[in-house]
Deep mutational scan, measured.
Amino acid sequence: NITNLCPFDEVFNATRFASVYAWNRKRISNCVADYSVLYNLAPFFTFKCYGVSPTKLNDLCFTNVYADSFVIRGDEVRQIAPGQTGNIADYNYKLPDDFTGCVIAWNSNKLDSKVSGNYNYLYRLFRKSNLKPFERDISTEIYQAGNKPCNGVAGFNCYFPLRSYSFRPTYGVGHQPYRVVVLSFELLHAPATVCGPKKST
């Protein structure tokens, strides 16, 4: 009989979030998941669920729940959905087409922007091929755009693959930082360890 609440607040209220290319994953298990708490945590810009209804979450049980978190800019949030393409979905964080879970995003301009520009958040701009779903690539190998090998040196047709967002508070919403948490629900042929409040007794 599990009584402890799932530590969603640790994920959502973390002081620092990860850069999207090096997104963070927390496995959540053996706890009571009260998803209604999430609705009250922040004024969400996005709370979209796929393959599951957000209002039914509190009635369900899962084997595992994974919470992935990272920062992107406002106009990239739409890429965090099944079947999307674009720089983020292709080279940084890719959801599977049959994704079961929820994408939660909110504006973090007050936390993640600086007047002089916050350069701490990076994204991958160049990659030889698209990522597979939930693949994480943290390599910093020089990207070869031409025929000549780069031998690890940046220059003509040889690019450092990561680029930094420079978040400034005066930017338009599309270029402001957004914190994203992706909850993916895993149903294996194994005992369910993460249940809503109704199912945990």
Rank of each mutant, 00 (worst) to 15 (best):
R168K: 04
D90Q: 13
Q79T: 05
L95H: 01
W106E: 01
G155S: 06
G51Y: 05
E141H: 11
A154W: 06
C195S: 08
K198I: 13
N64T: 12
K114E: 07
C102K: 03
I88C: 03
A22N: 13
L187E: 11
H175D: 02
G152L: 07
T85P: 07
W106M: 09
N13D: 07
E135D: 09
I2G: 14
D97W: 10
T201R: 14
T15C: 06
T3F: 09
P54K: 15
L57P: 07
R73Y: 00
V52T: 11
G74H: 03
V180R: 02
K26E: 08
K26T: 14
Y93Q: 00
L122C: 10
C150N: 01
F99T: 01
L125W: 15
R27N: 12
K26G: 04
A145M: 06
L111K: 13
P169F: 05
D59M: 10
D34I: 07
T15S: 14
L38D: 04
V181M: 07
Q176L: 03
A22D: 12
A145G: 09
N1C: 07
A105S: 14
K199C: 10
L95W: 01
K56D: 12
P82I: 04
S53R: 11
G196Q: 11
Q144E: 11
G196P: 13
A14F: 06
V32D: 09
R179L: 00
V65P: 03
I28V: 09
S53D: 15
E76M: 03
R78T: 11
S200C: 10
S184D: 07
S69F: 06
N30I: 05
G86Q: 02
P43E: 11
S139I: 05
G117R: 03
I104K: 03
Q79R: 05
L95I: 13
E186V: 08
F126G: 03
I104E: 00
R124N: 00
F12C: 06
P133Q: 05
T100P: 01
N151Y: 11
V182F: 01
F134G: 14
F156S: 06
K148M: 12
F160W: 12
E10K: 11
N157I: 02
I88F: 03
S164H: 10
R16L: 11
A18P: 15
R27V: 14
